[in-house]
Nucleic acid binder design. Structure first.
Length: 895
RNA sequence: GGGCGAAUAGCUCAGCGGUUCAGAGCGCCUGCCUUACACGCAGGAAGUCGGGGGUUCGAAUCCCUCUUCGCCCACCA
């Protein structure tokens, strides 16, 4: 009879334990990293999610990965710090609030800067940080006492400090050039923020004639995808060596519609093979044309408003003025056709970049922005990388990383937004003196005149790149900074390797005396659906991680994310079939739970530690499983060290299910029922192996392992698995011979099972019921059953014939466990196994002969068909009901 | 246009510097409600490891090439 203390339900219910366990971890301070700890630190800074974000699968993968690493190192005795926080996410957050006030029919300009920013703050205070609470549901073991936000006053000070330092070092400059401009967000974007589409769309290439009065041909034909930019043309360019057109160079062409005369110039940048080999140059609305414009000192008129409407005092004729750029394109095409200047239109793949936040097609636009000179920052990082001072896993990102670092371009850091860190550049309205300042100045330090601050804010990533040290109190030399910088592992998605990772490395080297912020960059894959599409809200193909937590438990979700994909490869999930995806994790948790139930029901109040035994004196099965546990420790530790988290998880699975449950537990059952002395050793071994399994699995599935570990005997008050030491590998235990011996036994048992299955030998209980007269049930003895009894008797006879001590018979009619005991006690296991194996082979032959003699009737009577049918029906109904429930929950969670 | 990755059982993937490598989970088939677990147990069917060529005694595993998918980067108007 199990102790009432161990009466656990036969199925693991995650919801019954998760919340309470998480609270216990937090209360016990397990996640809190102590500055004064003597332990060596291990630090991961969380990629801060947007403050208003809602948890999605990608973040699930990201955070679970970090949690596995941090829990592993924590158990290994490091002072583990996982620093959480959120990002103010300039454009993203501002857009959300702008959409809100748009419902009131207002724009941010109606509201005004100050009121708008206050509005965003209110929104953030109200709905922000929800994601951090969601991370807790996944079991994330962050040090919440150190939660940071990129707009915290202290953090803002750090941002300002870096800007001023870079300014003082001459690394920040005002650039007048063509940048990516979002006509919807009304701001500049960095190169990384203007995304090229995955596949080009079907566009058109328009062949437009520009009259050239003093040329015999009378015109030159230019191919363009964006006819609306014609109005901004200030030159026509051909390649200097293009024989077809050299005669034109120096002549004057007439811009259609705008009716402006522009020069025809020669420039190397022109590709003679494209289109007609003649290019129209629009310096203010095309980055390449801008370069040409610089070389030839061309005029650079803007012909659009920031909103993307056509506008220019002389170049845009009245009917086009105020027209949206795409409407203008259609209208211009119409006009060109009417004037006979549109030679032809060809289909052409067109891949305009889009704003990464609102998906609007970006308009290249000449404007004044602040830039950071990147090359001086990138060079030392690249050098450190080549000296292998930090690594990127998986390795395949090496080339990509190096290529980008080598060809790094200056970083446009100003945004025409209101939500973010205001650029600390001040201008004296009187003497035009301009400087960057750590504090807001009252007046000009040069002439005492009034000052005004730059209206723009900094790119969000300009605060993110300081994350590894600004979160620890920099620029102040805090205790945290001294203790926890530099960190160790950065876990993130490859999408933001340039946005964020590379820049953090640069900031670390530049501002932290050349000390890199981490030693390993771990790049995990992207979560996609079965059609390989990135999971996203807009596509509607997402799986809400919290739905999964509710339906299958946090551990099942974690299991899928960790065991389900190898290092750096994408995770494919089917949003339409959660069960296929997440039941393996749930099933495994349930298996673990039931092993726990079994173990706990067997173990007495006090169990001798395994150390009390001389292992070499234990039975074969005991020695073997202790060996396997030790091997699991070695393998799992090594895998985790190599960042092969999936392998680590799978190795645990194999040990727990394939070795501990399938073989040891089965083998040990008869002994547990035996006298106390033989049972005692088994208790110690069971307790040891189960404890080891729980420790090894804890980083991946923290909840269920903690729940079970709490119930193991000998637990002290307040002791937590989350803070328990990682098991140590013991090289002395390795014994290849022992493995071989056990394998032999295993093979004999498997052989027995094959025979039993092949000849449909029923389980022991049924045989007894069938053979003994009182086992005959009310349905009476059927003819077939009478036959069965006869045949079973014959099988038994055969088996007994061949084997000493009736081992074969045991094997055949038992469940294999008796055989274990018998073989385990054999003086020479190998010899005994070989003998038995031969015996079984002979038995099998005899059975085959017997079967042939008796005809093709089965050896065993089946249960009457109607009974079977009824059972099946019952099961099906139960399953349907469960599925129904699951569907309902899912619908609830998604809506 | 460059760079990278993937093609292995019906599905999702592991194995990749040559010796039990042809595997796992799910699905499928056949028995079992054997008092830890039917979210389970036992047994089983299933792949000429994308096509072609090469190196070798021997290749999913190394080399070349082709095909198909996917990703990243790039100022082709």
């Amino acid at each position: 009879m199990p102790h009432p203390r161990f009466e656990l339900p036969p199925q693991y219910d995650p919801r019954a334990v998760e919340r309470e366990l998480y609270a216990r971890w937090v209360e016990a301070g397990v996640f809190h990293a102590r500055v004064d700890s003597p332990k060596r630190p291990y630090v991961i800074v969380m990629p801060p999610p947007n403050v208003t974000a809602v948890l999605h699968m990608g973040q699930g993968l990201n955070n679970v990965t970090q949690d596995v690493l941090i829990r592993f190192e924590r158990m290994r005795g490091r002072e583990a710090l996982w620093l959480p926080g959120t990002d103010h996410a300039g454009i993203a957050t501002q857009n959300v609030v702008e959409r809100l006030i748009a419902k009131e029919g207002k724009t941010r300009f109606d509201v005004g800067r100050e009121a708008f920013v206050e509005r965003v703050w209110a929104f953030v205070r109200e709905t922000g940080n929800a994601i951090l609470a969601q991370l807790k549901e996944l079991g994330s073991s962050c040090d919440w006492s150190r939660t940071r936000f990129t707009l915290d006053p202290a953090y803002s000070q750090a941002v300002r400090e870096t800007f001023v330092r870079l300014w003082e070092e001459g690394l920040i400059y005002r650039g007048h050039r063509v940048i990516h401009w979002c006509p919807h967000c009304l701001t500049a974007l960095s190169d990384e923020e203007a995304e090229a589409p995955e596949t080009p769309e079907a566009g058109k290439l328009y062949y437009v004639r520009y009259p050239v009065p003093d040329d015999p041909a009378g015109h030159v034909t230019v191919a363009t995808t964006r006819p609306e930019t014609i109005l901004g043309d200030t030159a026509i360019a051909v390649h200097p060596k293009d024989r077809r057109y050299v005669r034109l160079v120096g002549k004057t062409a007439q811009v259609p519609i705008a009716n402006v005369a522009i020069p025809i110039i020669a420039d190397e940048a022109v590709d003679p093979a494209f289109g007609t080999g003649v290019v129209k140059v629009t310096p203010a609305h095309d980055a390449a044309d801008f370069e040409i414009g610089l070389r030839h000192a061309l005029e650079m008129p803007l012909v659009m408003t920031p909103e993307g409407r056509m506008e220019h005092p002389t170049r845009v004729p009245p009917p086009l003025a105020g027209l949206d750029r795409f409407a203008a394109r259609a209208e211009i095409v119409r006009l060109l056709t009417a004037q006979g200047l549109l030679e032809k239109v060809e289909p052409h793949p067109y891949a305009p970049r889009r704003c990464y936040r609102c998906d609007t097609i970006v308009e290249p636009r000449l404007s004044d922005q602040w830039f950071v000179r990147m090359q001086p920052l990138a060079e030392p990082v690249l050098a450190a990388y080549r000296r292998a001072e930090f690594q990127i896993v998986p390795e395949r990102w090496h080339a990509t990383f190096e290529q980008w670092m080598e060809h790094i371009r200056d970083w446009n850091i100003s945004r025409q937004l209101w939500w973010g860190h205001r650029i600390p550049v001040f201008t004296c309205t009187k003497c035009r003196h301009r400087w960057a300042d750590r504090a807001d100045p009252a007046r000009c330090p040069k002439c005492g005149g009034p000052v005004e601050q730059d209206p723009d804010v900094l790119d969000t990533w300009f605060s993110s790149w300081l994350w590894p040290f600004a979160t620890l109190g920099w620029p102040d030399q805090t205790a945290d900074l001294g203790r926890f910088y530099p960190g160790h592992t950065l876990v993130t998605a490859p999408e933001i390797i340039f946005f964020w990772v590379a820049r953090m490395l640069m900031a670390g080297v530049h501002f932290m005396d050349g000390r890199l912020p981490f030693t390993t960059v771990y790049l995990h894959g992207t979560v996609r659906d079965t059609q390989h599409r990135k999971m996203s809200k807009s596509l509607g193909n997402g799986i809400d991680p919290l739905d999964v937590v509710r339906l299958y438990g946090a551990d099942a979700l974690r299991w899928m994310l960790i065991a389900g994909s190898s290092l750096g490869s994408d995770v494919l999930l089917d949003p339409n079939d959660l069960d296929t995806t997440f039941s393996p994790g749930r099933n495994f948790a349930n298996k673990l739970w039931n092993i726990g139930r079994f173990v706990l029901a067997q173990l007495p109040e006090r169990v001798q530690p395994l150390e009390a035994y001389d292992i070499s004196g234990l039975p074969l099965a005991d020695r073997w499983i202790v060996l396997r546990a030790n091997e699991a420790v070695r393998a799992v530790t090594a895998y985790l060290e190599e960042f092969k988290l999936d392998e680590a998880a799978k190795r645990c699975y194999e040990f727990v299910w394939g070795e501990l449950a399938d073989w040891y537990v089965e083998a040990v059952k008869p002994r547990l029922a035996g006298d106390e002395r033989t049972a005692a050793a088994a208790h110690s071994v069971l307790a040891h192996c189960f404890d080891t399994a729980l420790r090894l699995l804890h980083p991946v599935v923290p909840f269920i392992t903690e729940a079970l570990w709490q119930k193991l005997p000998g637990r002290a008050e307040g002791e937590l698995l989350a803070a328990a030491p990682w098991p140590a590998f013991r090289p002395a235990l390795v014994d290849a011979e022992l493995d071989r011996q056990f394998l032999l036994v295993r093979q004999v048992v498997e052989k027995v099972r094959v025979i039993r299955a092949e000849y449909r030998v029923p389980p022991k209980a049924r045989i007894r019921a069938t053979i003994t007269p009182r086992g005959r049930d009310a349905r009476g003895v059927f003819e077939a059953e009478r036959e069965t009894i006869k045949r079973l008797a014959q099988i038994e006879e055969l088996a007994l014939d061949g084997g000493a001590r009736g081992v074969g018979a045991y094997a055949l009619f038992g469940d294999g466990s008796e055989l274990f005991v018998a073989l385990g006690e054999a003086i020479n296991v190998g010899q005994e196994c070989r003998r038995l194996s031969g015996e079984l082979t002979r038995l099998e032959q005899q059975l085959t002969g017997l079967e042939a003699k008796l005809g093709n009737q089965q050896f065993v009577a089946r249960a009457p068909a109607d009974v079977v049918a009824k059972e099946r029906e019952k099961e099906r109904a139960w399953r349907d009901q469960r599925q129904l429930l699951a569907d309902k929950l899912r619908a609830l969670g998604c809506s």
